[in-house]
Simulated assay, not measured.
Amino acid sequence: MSGLEKLLAGLAVLPFGLGFALTADQSDADDGTVVFSFSDPAIIESSGLVVEQGLFATVNDSGDSGRVFTVDPADGSTVAVTEWDGEPEDVEAMAPMPDGDVLVGDIGDNNAVRDSIELLRVPFGEDGPVDPITYDLVYPDGAHDAEALLVHPDTGQVMVVAKEFIGRLYAAPEKLDKDDPNRLEMLGEVMPIATDGAFFPDGEHFVLRGYGSATFYRWPSLDEVGEIDLPSQPQGEGIAVGADGAVYVSSEGADSEVLRIGLPKALRAELDGTTAAPDRDVETTEDPAADDETDATRPFWSWALGGAAGVVILLVLLRSLRPR
């Protein structure tokens, strides 16, 4: 598919996605509990979140140097900046490793032109310069943009989620090779436009987030076990799961907040392993009224509005491409 064809395809579906986002805002999402706000003026595009040892870590989005900020939630202050030489291309994510290190994902590729993506392994919470171990990853089916990076808490296997309208989960070999490219394997389809993800401590569940919602999965079956609307955020691009299973979300923006979000009882029970797996066709939320709103029953006006906008955009673009 040519670059122009990709652009046209993206524009055709983007307004429908916007229509979905408009209706998602109408639901009764949990507002979350503010844990802290980033107070470091250098943290302006938090993209990716890790919680370890009572501290939080984040990285800035593309355009920053190679560094990780470790933050004390007591006051939001930065207590360590882990730095390394080199010019990252597009850092978008982080994930904790089983041994306590952190994996930084230089995995962004908005134009889908990179031959490979890069992971950097650095010690958690170390202040000052470090010499990271780097790994190159190669997709089996061409370049993809990605913002979600996951690491299995037991095996250490690395996974990357393509940020596309058909989300796909890719897995690296369980043992990464630091000398040669590591070929990814596509495991299955997951939520579209994922901006981050994290495993739960049990290694049997993981969560992916988008800008307005989060979807929970079983591992390794990739069965969905629940979906929730997330609190409104300027540009939500971070999610982390604590050792106790608590779920935290973060957003880009200066002085942005990190929130702890509540989960419906049935979903929490599934994640804690205290109940039988819920039927895939049964809503997992506590509020019976929430059963009334599914993707199929979202207000028609939003889909119509998105569709109409898509037609207008395509007509304008096609007109501009006519020979003059």
Rank of each mutant, 00 (worst) to 15 (best):
D141R: 00
L184A: 09
V138T: 11
K175H: 09
F200Q: 10
A194Q: 04
A172H: 01
G203W: 04
S232E: 15
D145H: 01
A162C: 04
G210D: 15
W219T: 03
P192K: 12
E237F: 04
H205F: 03
G242P: 05
L263I: 06
T274H: 13
A194V: 07
D202Q: 01
D244N: 14
L169Y: 06
V241Q: 12
V258F: 14
Y211V: 10
T215L: 04
Q157L: 08
G212M: 10
L187Q: 07
E270N: 03
T215W: 05
R218H: 09
E257N: 12
D141Y: 01
E270P: 00
L137Y: 02
R209C: 11
L187E: 03
P201M: 05
D177H: 08
V158R: 05
A214F: 09
E174I: 13
G212P: 00
E257R: 15
V138Y: 03
S232W: 08
A246P: 01
P201Q: 07
T215I: 11
P192T: 10
A162R: 06
A214L: 08
G262H: 05
P153S: 08
T275S: 15
E204D: 14
Y248F: 15
T195K: 00
S213W: 15
D244S: 13
M186C: 13
I193W: 15
I228Q: 07
D180N: 11
L222K: 06
S250L: 09
E204T: 07
I239E: 10
H152R: 01
L259A: 11
D229G: 09
E257A: 15
L267D: 11
E224Y: 02
A146S: 15
A277Q: 12
S251D: 11
D154C: 00
W219A: 09
G156W: 02
A171Y: 03
R260I: 01
G142T: 01
D196L: 04
R218W: 02
T215A: 13
A198M: 12
D145F: 02
V190W: 09
I261E: 11
G142L: 04
D229Q: 13
L169N: 05
S251P: 05
D223V: 08
I239G: 13
V190C: 08
P220I: 01
P234D: 12
L184S: 06
Y217F: 11
P173C: 05
F206Q: 04
L263V: 03
A171I: 06
L263R: 11
E204I: 01
I166G: 04
A171L: 07
E147L: 06
K163E: 15
T274M: 12
G262L: 07
S213P: 00
G142S: 08
G167E: 06
G142Y: 02
